[in-house]
Amino acid sequence: MFLEINFKSDLQIYEQIRRGIIIGLAKGDIKPGDKLPSVREMAENIGINLHTVNKAYKLLEADGLIIMDRRFGSLISEEKNPMKDFDSEKMASELDLLIAIARLKGLSEEEFISNINKKWENKND
């Protein structure tokens, strides 16, 4: 699978899984309707507790990105706008943090926006 887990990161593993799947979907590495590995399979592949994977999957389900079904497993949602209920306040909070970090690093507004534009245009990076 396309996930890269950094065990030394301050970011919780379940959040790394969640973000990895969101990024994979945005890049086209995974597509609507794709089946994800089972919770147990993902946990074994990464070498982590299955409850950690289950937490990530539950968050993705709450985001509207995956559908969990006991009969069919976990599937990427085929809904056209799966994150329509995503909390815009949370997104604004994440953006506030990124802006603060950019300012602390001494980036100008133009450099920050240029970095965003590069990432947006090169979604396969």
Rank of each mutant, 00 (worst) to 15 (best):
P37M: 05
A100T: 11
D29N: 14
K35Q: 09
L97N: 06
I99W: 12
R40Q: 06
K105L: 08
T52S: 06
M42K: 00
I21P: 07
A100M: 07
E121N: 14
T52V: 15
E78I: 15
L65K: 02
K105E: 15
N49I: 07
R19H: 09
K123H: 13
A92F: 04
R103S: 06
L75G: 03
E41V: 04
K84P: 01
R103D: 10
D87L: 06
L107C: 03
R18H: 14
Y57A: 07
K118W: 06
E94N: 09
I113D: 00
K105W: 03
K31Y: 11
R70L: 04
G24N: 07
D69L: 04
P32N: 08
E89T: 10
L104I: 04
E121R: 13
D10C: 03
Q12K: 14
I23A: 07
Y14E: 14
S108Y: 01
H51Y: 11
N54L: 12
N49D: 15
A100E: 12
L75S: 12
G64L: 00
I13P: 06
F72R: 10
K55W: 09
I48Y: 02
F112Q: 01
L11M: 14
P32A: 08
L104K: 09
E4N: 15
I46L: 10
E110I: 01
K80R: 12
F86P: 01
L95R: 08
N115M: 10
E89F: 10
F7Q: 13
N124F: 12
P82A: 04
R71C: 01
R19A: 08
K58P: 00
E15T: 11
F2E: 07
D125Q: 11
W120N: 06
E89R: 14
G24E: 05
G47D: 08
I21M: 07
E94P: 00
S88M: 09
A62D: 15
F7I: 13
K105M: 09
P82V: 05
I66M: 05
L3N: 05
K31W: 12
V39L: 01
L95V: 13
I22Y: 03
A102N: 05
L25M: 09
L97I: 13
L11N: 04
A100K: 12
L59K: 12
I48V: 15
I76F: 14
K90A: 10
N54Y: 13
N54A: 14
N6I: 12
D69C: 07
F112E: 01
